[in-house]
Amino acid sequence: MLTRIPPRVRALLILSILILIAPMLFPSSFYYRIGTLIFINSIAVIGLVILIGYAGQISLGHAGFSGIGAYACALAPTHLGLPPFLSLILGAVISGLLAWFVGRPILRLKGHYLAVATLGLGMLISMVLNNEAQFTGGPDGMMVASLGLTKGLEGLFDVNLKTSVVWYWFAGVMVLLGAWIALNLYNSPTGRVLRSVHDSEIAAKTVGADVARYKLVAFVISAVYASIAGSMLALFNRFITPDIASFLHSVELVTMTVLGGAGSVLGGIAGATLLTALPQALTVFHEYEHVMLGLIMMLVMIFMRDGLLPTLRKTLTRRAIA
């Protein structure tokens, strides 16, 4: 019965159910924060699924766009008097424009050259955030205005709400929205061209696709996703440091995408879930925490080449057939 529903509706359905029932299993309100962080990371990762999974381009600098989004929310309310939500949009617009502007020359590069160019782009953004301390507070970070979600809801319904609970639902809805857009893109004409670029750029070019334009579209969309995720993290934590734009965060995002299964939105979300929750579980290993993290990353990539979710799915279908 489930098979008759179109795959993208099925994916959204599964995601909604998971978001709805997860809180029933939370032992304490702390887990709402973990849930929210998973959703925020998922949004950035969905963007990378479009770039890496659909279009087959790599980026080691997307944390830079998260940094732009985060600092837009930190700076625009005080300097431009914008409300936080509009600051989030402003950050997304700036990130999108920057990606569009640098995307053309950068995306002409291939493979590892593309990796090092995006890495450089991310480094440059993170250096500006670190160095311009009179605006950004430097490496010690700065406070961020509140989005006012909790206050607003409390005012509306005259109840007492926990910020992380409110954010869990807000970020959950945002993930659904992000996944819905990405899933629709997958089946759109643009998505089909992107996937053909992934398989073979030259073949796509030969059949008449404007490859450069489509790659640029994927790059810009993924930058906007990363920027929105950065804005949300800043507004959720109400405090931000340049660490959000660091090389290590870029690597973390790519790792989430690939570990879960770069080809699918659900896979990306699975990767974000694993890598966000794992450090909390690994605290039991104390000083062996990092050893375990490295080991898990290697084992997953060696034994589940398509990523966590696609491999699981394959195993399950095989068992179902047998």
Binding site: T255, M297, M298
Partner: peptide
Amino acid sequence: VVNLIIITIGA
């Protein structure tokens, strides 16, 4: 390629 990058980052 990306898998191998993640493996070496894990290493």
